[in-house]
Each structure stands twice: as structure tokens, then as C-alpha cells.
Nucleic acid binder design. Structure first.
Lengths: 296, 296
DNA sequence: TAGTAAAATAATATGATATTATGAGATTGA
DNA sequence: TCAATCTCATAATATCATATTATTTTACTA
């Protein structure tokens, strides 16, 4: 029993005529006759009584008709739902990001995106390695990460150039100077994210590369907490511009330049090389690049 | 998209492998590959992500999988329901009968039948012409009637020989005699069914054939009412044995023979010649004949 | 880095599902 | 009542979808 069979049967039921059904389905009348009698053979029940030239449904025929309608409706519904997906009237996008991007950038990006498309967006925050794993698993469709990606199967596209700012409280003695020499850092109390965080990696790597000694006095695993601590002048810190721009503009934190040293990193968009790029996926990538102008 | 397509797709989803699905469905692997990619072409959506050698469902794939399962379940349910019908675990039988049979015989017959098969029995009472019409329409499957059937398209099978009994009250002067001559009827008050009823037709036709004069004093369109009236000795009547046997056995009515005259008729089973005889139909016919031994 | 395994692709074979042609039975209308 | 018309069934054939085998590509595994 195929859908075609059911479609033909249902049409015959509704028109109470094989030839009329044939006409409606743009096929020959014998094809309809054959289909019906074949169904009767397969199912081992008589579907129609042929009384005179009039067709009337038998009891099993009525049962099959009711199921047939339900089945056809379900198929139609499935097709139209898939059509909605294809035309992005519905959909699902699973995005992952490492901490900084995830907290300070993506929520707004996703919010804007959902204003344009009423789709479900699933959103995971993890470190770069975790996001990379999720991409490999196809557990998420796309990620935005800060660190280097190791798998050869993952496509990496530069997205945003990030910079970490050295910030201090407006009450700190550096607040006036706006610029210091590297040596001045040595005896300063530094508040820093935990080991393994992308921010700390960039900080330590840059400091080492420039042979600057430093002392991390406080470790907090939460950027917001670090900002509060710096504001309270408990110490200074190095934090992504994405996380502190508001506070700097508001004067609650002060950005301090270090002579000849900049903490730089790149955020990258990553996805699996074999990933099928749905319309929605492409649209989100476009959206990401469009959104960049809001930041730079 | 065919039923087969969905079956293949669902199997692939569940085994997460095309070759495993092919094995399970006893078909070649390329056939599965082809089916899937053809579905993707038709529906214009990617159903699987081919990441490495692992297959994972896309979002539209997941949607189709959920619909697919529902559709397959519905088809299976339809098939098993039809199987139940075929094996008479369920069914429908539409029976019609003319008045006497309908009231005094069929209820018990149907009751017994439903003890054996849990099927729906629809039951219509009408005069012979009405039942004949319903048969022609295929509005009922089978009828039991008393009168002659005119349509050449209806199969008529003799069922039961019925006889009308002349009955009087136990207080009537005939009650002792048990037998009378035709001439004795002439001046008797007769209570009779309305014109057009099968009973009256047989009565009048038999009386005319035997040149007996008679006088119908009361007309009632209800056999039960006639029986009560006869019991009350308001008059005598001629009633099917099926309707009065209990009362005669109980002594409330007395059967009176008329010399050389018997009111005879036959009940017949009728159905349309083109009617498909389902198992249930055949079973009911058999049941009818089995039941005869309870009456004769 | 070879060996194995899975999926895709190509060429071909098969078979279900159409079509045309025709026939039988039934209703309709002159 | 009898031809005309209509409906469905049957038979022969054609077509096209769906399978198969053979082969290639790619990825995982030891």
C-alpha cells in the first residue's frame, strides 16, 4: 500500500466514481480500477460494493477511508512543515561560544537575529576546546571562539579582532597617567581569571613574550566579579574591551596603556567542514558580519 | 514521497546508518542512499549531515522523522484494523426486517449473534417494499421480509414458513370448540391490522380464495394492541404464530382451527445479487439457519 | 600507512504502475 | 425496447521509478 494508492482510494471514495477520480488525478480510468482492485487483493477485503453502476463503500472501505484521510493529512502537514523550514519561517540554530563572546556579544546578536526570524536558537557557553568538541559531534551548528582550533575538519573564519585592556579604578594612581611602562606592573596587585581561560592565556603569553614580570594576587572565575573588584580598587586587571567598554565610557573603570604592549586576540567563527549550510545557517553568518559594524 | 521512502528514511534514522538500514530492509546500500538523496531533492531540504562517516539528523530531518513515525504507525494501525474486520473481531452488519419478523424474531436472533461476534448490528424495521428499497440502495446488507419481492436484482431465499392463527379469548364461545367451519366467521367481529400490512394481505387473500365472507370491525396498527384486545374478548383476530405462541401456551389466547383453511406465508431472506458477501455476512446467514431449529 | 568500512556515483536490470484498446453490464431517453 | 452512453473491468503493452551490481571516494582503525 503506497501513498499513491491511498490518494487514489480516497479520491474515489469522495467522488464515488472511478472515472471521475481518474479525471481529477489526471490519469486513466483503468489505472484507478487496477489500483483499487490491487488494494483489495493486498488487504484481503472488499472496499467497494459495485451495485449496479453505483459504488458504495463497504465497512472496511469506510475504515480505510477514515485512516486514509488522516494519513494524507499527516503527509501534507509534514510537507508543509518542511516547506516552512526551507523558507525559514521556522527552524533551529545551535550556537556555541567561549566565555567572553558568549556573555558580552552573542546575547545581543541572537536577540537581533530572532527579531528577523522566528526560529529556535540554542545557545551554549563553554571554553574553546568544549565548543570545538560540540562542533565535531555536530551537537551545535556553529561556534564563536577565541582560542586556536586544532581539528583539521573545522573551518575557521576570522570574525572580530579583540583586545584586552589593562584597567584600573578611577581612584587608582594610574588613573591620571593613562599610560605606564611595563616595569610599573611588576609590583601591582593583579586580579585575573582562572588558568585555562582564554583571557588569562593571552595575558600570560603576551607578558612572557615581552619579558614582563607580574604577580596575580586574586583569581576570580567571573569577569563581572573582576570588574567590581577593580572598581573597588582591590587591584587592576586585564579584560576584553567587549567586557569593559561600558564601564570605561561611564568612567567607573580607566583604561591604562602599556608602552609597546598590546594584548591582542581574534575571535573566530567555526563550523564543521562537512556541515550542510542551510538557508538559516547562511543567514546567521551574514547576520554576524552585519553585526560587526555595531562593534568596531 | 512514498510510504516506502518513509520506511527507509525512518530505518536509517533509527540505525544511524544507511548500510545497516539496507541490511535490515533486505536491500542494497545504494538503493538506500539513492532513496534518501532523492527525498532530499524532492523536499528541498538536507535530511542528514554527513559528518565523517557518521550520519546525524538535521533539523528538518528530525521533523520528518517524527512525522514519519506517526505516519507509519497510522498505516500499521489501519492495516491491523482491516485485519480485525477480515477476521470478524469487529464489523458492521445492517439488517432490515418487516414488522412481524422484526418484532418477534430478529431481536433474539441478533442478540444471539452478538454473543458470538462483537460487531455492530444496525437494525431497521419497515414494510417489505421499504426493506426492498434499502437493499437496492445498499443501505442495509440483508433483509428478512414476508411479502413478494419485485426487483430482479435481489436474491430471495426462503427462510421460515409462517402461519397465521385464528385466535380468540379464553372466554370466547370458540374457546371450547377449538375448531370451526368457515361460515362461522361471517358474523364475528374481527380485529385486524391496517391495509398494506403483510398479515392483512395474507388474511384477505386467503379468505377471498376460499370464498369466505368476513367483517373487520376494528383496525389497529399494532400487533400487541390487537392481542390485548382479543384477550379482552373485544373480537377475534388472525395473527402470526410467532406473535401469539407465548399467549397460546399461557392460555391467555386460544387458537381456533378453521376447517380446510390455513393462512400460510413464507419469510424470505433477501440481499442484493451484487452484494459482496463478507465473512461476517456469510456467518450471519449461517446463524439465521441455525436459529431456525429454535422455532420450528 | 595499509586495511576496512561506509556512503556516493554510474550503469543497468527489473518490475510496478501507467497507458491504450477493448469489452461487458447498466442506466437513459427516444 | 433498443440504441446510445456511461462506468467499470480486463488485456496487452509501454514507461518510468526503483532496485541491483560494480566501482570510486572518503574516513576511520589498527
Amino acid at each position: 500500500m503506497t501513498f499513491r494508492d491511498i490518494e487514489i482510494f480516497v479520491t474515489v471514495c469522495e467522488l464515488k466514481s472511478m472515472s471521475a477520480a481518474a479525471k481529477k488525478l489526471y490519469m486513466s480510468q483503468p489505472a484507478v480500477s487496477q489500483t483499487i482492485s490491487q488494494m483489495e487483493g493486498e488487504l484481503q477485503v472488499r472496499l467497494f460494493d459495485r451495485i449496479g453502476k453505483r459504488l458504495t463503500l463497504t465497512y472496511p472501505g469506510e475504515i480505510l477511508y477514515s485512516y486514509g484521510r488522516r494519513i494524507l493529512n499527516l503527509v501534507k502537514e509534514a510537507e508543509s512543515t518542511l516547506d516552512d523550514v526551507r523558507n525559514m519561517r521556522m527552524g533551529r540554530l545551535r550556537v556555541g561560544a567561549s566565555t567572553t563572546v558568549g556573555i558580552y556579544l552573542l546575547p545581543e546578536i541572537i536577540g537581533e537575529f530572532r527579531k528577523r526570524f522566528s526560529v529556535d536558537v540554542y545557545f551554549t557557553i563553554d571554553n574553546t576546546a568544549g565548543i570545538e568538541k560540540l562542533i565535531s559531534d555536530n551537537s551545535i551548528d556553529l561556534g564563536i571562539v577565541e582560542g586556536p582550533v586544532h581539528s583539521r575538519d573545522i573551518v575557521v573564519t576570522p570574525y572580530i579582532d579583540d583586545e584586552l585592556y589593562l584597567v584600573c579604578s578611577k581612584n587608582h594612581r594610574w588613573a591620571e597617567k593613562k599610560s605606564i611602562s611595563p616595569a610599573e606592573i611588576e609590583n601591582e596587585d593583579i586580579i585575573m581569571r582562572e588558568k585555562g581561560s582564554g583571557t588569562r592565556e593571552v595575558f600570560e603569553e603576551t607578558m612572557a613574550r615581552n619579558n614582563v614580570r607580574y604577580r596575580i594576587k586574586y583569581v576570580l572565575n567571573n569577569t563581572e566579579a573582576i570588574k567590581k573588584a577593580v572598581e573597588a580598587n582591590i587591584g587592576v586587571s586585564v579584560i576584553s574591551r567587549l567586557a569593559v567598554e561600558k564601564e570605561i565610557r561611564g568612567g567607573r573603570l580607566v583604561k591604562v596603556d602599556i608602552e609597546n604592549i598590546r594584548f591582542e586576540r581574534k575571535f573566530s567563527i567555526i563550523y564543521h567542514k562537512d556541515k550542510f549550510k542551510s538557508n538559516l545557517f547562511e543567514e546567521f553568518i551574514k547576520h554576524l558580519y552585519d553585526f560587526r559594524s555595531n562593534i568596531k
